[in-house]
Structures are given as structure tokens and as C-alpha cells.
Amino acid sequence: MAMLQLKNIDVIFNWGTVNETQVFDNFNLDIEKGQFVSVVGSNGSGKTTLLNLVAGNLEPTSGEILLEGKSILNLAEYERSHFIGRVFQDPGKGTSPSMTILENMALADNKGQTFGLQRGVNRKRLDFYRSQLEQLELGLEDKLNVKVGALSGGQRQALSLLICTLTPIQLLILDEHTAALDPKTSETIMELTNKLIQEKGLTTLMVTHNLRYAVEYGNRLLMMNKGEAVIDAQDAEKDKLEINDLVQVFSEISIELGN
């Protein structure tokens, strides 16, 4: 059974007004367990809408969304967080800047449990946090008591990734998560992302504007246009894809749209 299924999804914004726009018309998508899907496409192609639908920021006009065969449509965004982790474009969104690295790790560690009056930071977990932070190879394990607000964008994004995947999740959503970083940091974060995904065998949905990342990473590639997947290549087929192929389709689409 597919890990994530979107069935007959319609999304219409401003329904019944002059500004009515249909983003999805009977859109279907199945993502298998362990698949790492990269989604590319121009602005307005429906990539972000897709993520918002899955994460729970947006309700479809009609259709069904299933995670491991169970409908998640009636769950609020925070309830879906039990199963779905999300890393945003803005590195500030995944962490609490006024709290220390240690406190951020402790919060993440407690996800899915009650937040009662127990001590917030469990000292017995320090070694575990350190070993997790070591994987990032940024030396954050020696800065446990530094406030996250004092870290660079790249460090914060790496920490966001770790926090998001610290407790088991069924689906990881990457929302242009390297777009706000400089090219070198972006590269580091992408490699780190790939490493974490492989290690934990995470099913992943990644939206990116970087065609090279889409080609290099993951085992499935979707190119979206006007709410449809104009390219959907998996495994061997995907391996054959090159940036130039994508660029060609991309420019054809753009010409069509008159850009």
C-alpha cells in the first residue's frame, strides 16, 4: 500500500468570485513507502499547494488524502505533525531562537508525549542529543547551551532537520528548505538531508527550485505545471533524466504560459 495517497483532489481558490482559480482538477498522486520524491515547477504550478494539502494548512475543495491508508483530511495541522515532519524555507521556523540548542532538542525529544510539569531537560538524554548533533558535523554538540538565535541560517536549518526527524515520522516534507541559504551551505544541508533520509529510510516529499538537486537526489521526480505532473519519472527512468531535459520542458512550459 502506498504511504501517501492523494485521490481526485480539486482545489479551487476564491470559489464563485471573479478571482476564482482552479489549482487542481482531479489530481491524483501515490507515494510509496521509502520513496524520496523531488517536486519542481514554476511559480503557480501547484507545488506549494500540494505541500499545504498534505501538511494540513489547506483543505481541498474535494478529494481524499490518505496516509498509510487512513484519511488525514479531518486532522488539523498540529495533529498531522504526529506523522508528518516539515522543514520550511525559513530556517527560523523549525526552532525556537530564544532557547538553547539543548532546550530545542529536549522539546523535540518530547514530541508525542504530554508536556506537563516534569523537568523540561532530561540530563540523562544529554549523550543521546550529543550523538545526534554529531551527525550534523557542525560542532553543535559542543554548543548545547548556546541560544539557537545566535546560530547561522545553515546551522539552524541543520538543527531544524534533526529536530524534525528526531522522533519517528511517516512522511518528511521539505519545503524549499535550502532556498534561503548560500550555495555552499545549501549544498551541505542537501547532503545532510540525503544522509538522514537514507539512514532513517524516510518517505520524503521535497519541493525545490534547484533542478540539479531534483536530478541528483531522490528516486522519483515530479515536474508540476498548472496542477498536473508533466513529468513523473521513477528509479531507472529518473536516473536517465538530466538537467537539460528538465530545462527544456521547463522553457516550453514557460513559453506556453507567455513568460
Binding site: 495541522e77 498540529y78 495533529e79 505533525s81 504526529h82 515532519g85 516539515r86 520550511f88 527560523g92 521556523k93 523549525g94 526552532t95 525556537s96 531562537p97 522539546l107 523535540a108 518530547n110 514530541k111 508525542g112 529536530i163 524534525c164
Partner: peptide, 9 residues
């Protein structure tokens, strides 16, 4: 960062 709380379910 309210989003973090949302992410913590």
C-alpha cells in the same frame, strides 16, 4: 515560534 509548537504536535 508558534510553528514549532504545531510541529511538536
Amino acid at each position: 515560534n508558534p510553528q514549532l509548537v504545531t510541529s511538536l504536535a
